[in-house]
């Protein structure tokens, strides 16, 4: 993903377009281009769908999570493959006899919350560490860079496995903590590189000569010009975090009852795949579509902000 570092010219955009002039017009351009892209629109719609399940499950099902289950109905498939057939259990029952559709709807929240929170935490960390390290250089840079190297060098799954085996309680926050601890490094490196490139620009020297404080230089001048590639990477990171969380679920160190997630449902389904394929197919579709929507959004945003590819 080192290619996203390319072109500091792309870095002149800001999120809301608060900076006047040139950058606002790039953001404006980008937005205009985005609106025309079908993949962007499709991704956005998908995301809205899944997001509404995560935020307001009651819109989609009248059942609460893990309630009204009957173990004796477990692994009973749907009566019809058509989910709109009007059956009371359009997706059948899950491995413990709960309505699969309801469990599926309630399973949306965990992955989305994990993906977004992990990325936010990682983004915050990387902006902070990356700009400190890039701007000040010297021993601080040395220290932060080596710590980043260490965290980057740790085999990801191995680290998560060890930490999560040690925690007996696996709620969403334990997973968020572990994934954040593993996922801040790439963005930090990206940020550092951007800051180093930006700090030698004339306008930064000018601001310094005018007596601006370090903080002001970093926040008003460097960051707005350096952060775009990091943001673009962050949209991809959401998908990666959701995917990583599902791998942890698969390995049996992910979320525990009463939390629900598609990853756990997939993990439950693996042993049943041959006899009850629907158990794996439904959550796989939901999870894949969610990841797909984040990936499509990320792609579209990157293309829109990268003038070289216009």
């Amino acid at each position: 993903m080192s290619n996203t570092q390319s072109g500091t010219a792309a870095a002149t955009a800001t999120t809301g377009g608060t900076v006047a002039g040139r950058s606002a017009s790039l953001a404006g351009d980008a937005w205009r281009e985005l609106r025309r892209k079908p993949s962007f629109i499709a991704g956005l719609l998908l995301l809205l769908l899944v997001g509404s399940m995560a935020a307001f499950p009651s819109l989609w099902t009248s059942r609460e999570a893990n309630e009204q289950c009957n173990a004796r109905m477990a692994k009973t498939g749907p009566e019809s493959l058509n989910p709109f057939s009007g059956s009371e259990h359009p997706f059948g029952f899950d491995v413990s006899g709960c309505d699969y559709w309801a469990q599926m709807v309630h399973g949306a929240r965990a992955p989305i919350v994990i993906g977004i929170t992990v990325t936010l935490v990682a983004l915050l960390l990387s902006v902070l560490l990356g700009s400190l390290s890039g701007y000040y250089g010297g021993w601080l840079d040395m220290l932060i860079s080596r710590i980043t190297d260490i965290a980057f060098g740790l085999p990801f799954i191995l680290g998560a496995l060890v930490v999560l085996t040690a925690f007996p309680e696996h709620d969403i926050w334990a997973i968020v903590l572990v994934l954040s601890a593993m996922m801040w490094t790439t963005m930090t490196r990206l940020m550092r590189g951007q800051v180093i490139a930006a700090k030698d620009q004339d306008y930064v020297h000018a601001a310094k000569m005018l007596g601006a404080s370090d903080l002001r230089v970093i926040f008003r001048h460097i960051l707005p010009n350096a952060i775009a590639p990091v943001f673009i990477y962050a949209t991809l990171n959401i998908a990666l975090a959701i995917s990583a969380a599902s791998v942890l679920d698969f390995l049996g160190v992910g979320l525990d009852y009463p939390s629900l997630s598609w990853g756990v449902q997939l993990a439950d389904a693996q042993a049943e795949f041959l006899e009850h394929p629907y158990l794996m197919v439904y959550p796989a579709i939901f999870l894949s579509l969610t990841l797909l929507s984040f990936l499509m959004l990320g792609d579209a945003v990157r293309d829109a902000f990268d003038p070289k590819l216009r």
Binding site: N66, E67, Q68, C69, A71, V95, G97, C98, D256, P258
Partner: peptide
């Protein structure tokens, strides 16, 4: 974990 989940659901219901 699978059967404990059903025990938990039983206790709740």
């Amino acid at each position: 974990e699978k059967w404990m989940r059903i025990v938990a659901q039983n206790l709740k219901d």
